[in-house]
Nucleic acid binder design. Sequence first.
DNA 1: TGACATCAAATGCACGCGCATGTAAGTTCG
DNA 2: CGAACTTACATGCGCGTGCATTTGATGTCA
Lengths: 128, 128
Amino acid sequence: MEAEADVDVCDKWSETLRVYHTTSCELENELQSRHGLGLSEFEVLLILGRATGECGVKARMKDIEAETHLSQSALSRTVTRLEKAGLVARAACEFDRRANFLALTPAGRERFEQAAPTHRSVLLKHLG
Amino acid sequence: MEAEADVDVCDKWSETLRVYHTTSCELENELQSRHGLGLSEFEVLLILGRATGECGVKARMKDIEAETHLSQSALSRTVTRLEKAGLVARAACEFDRRANFLALTPAGRERFEQAAPTHRSVLLKHLG
DNA sequence: TGACATCAAATGCACGCGCATGTAAGTTCG
DNA sequence: CGAACTTACATGCGCGTGCATTTGATGTCA
């Protein structure tokens, strides 16, 4: 029984690893070559793109961090890259000057909408 | 239909990411703190430990590479680390001097057998 | 045999990550 | 008020990774 459960759980883990690696590698390659976006960069755009009907609305760094599996420092640098690329803007929060609000720029929304179909099709290919 | 499939596939991916990240983070932490092994190091030990009844038997780098999701260079360095730790030994192949045979040392087998229950219990906790 | 393609493995390099720490802004409580 | 604590974010640092290249050994074919 135990031995069987072990085998099951090991196989399950192998399968999870296989799906994760093949899918995220292809996502990374496709997003990078077609849209110049890394995977974690796209994921930030995805969160911002979903959270906001239009461009102006914002999310705090902490809130975004909670929606990804990135560390706080990794998110900070990812946002820095997006900001340098002009896809995202940081804006200080009036009520808590520690916090940063984040918003898609028009260019960011455009890039996101270009990249989203690529993202979707890779997911469908591997998980559909 | 399409919209639904998209949502399904996105949720499925989120869930895969969640399982992958939580499990591999805890695996990494537990293996590192309890046994001084990184995740990819343990995975190499696992392959060697499974492939061989006793210590002497070997596997080629290329064959191991095919069983992991590591790149060739990452595997090469992982094996270098294991070798420096005395857990694994490289041995030239007589018939093809390009190839390296790899074998667990006795210390490597011991470490693997100590670490395997940790690995198993983390997997059971998250996937069982 | 000699020129050329192929293969196994190692290595230089740039990059993104997490951890630990720093900085500045908010909070708590005497 | 003010000292101690906590929170939000940025940054220094070391590490493991993948990509591209190198080194050296094997095939192949004329």
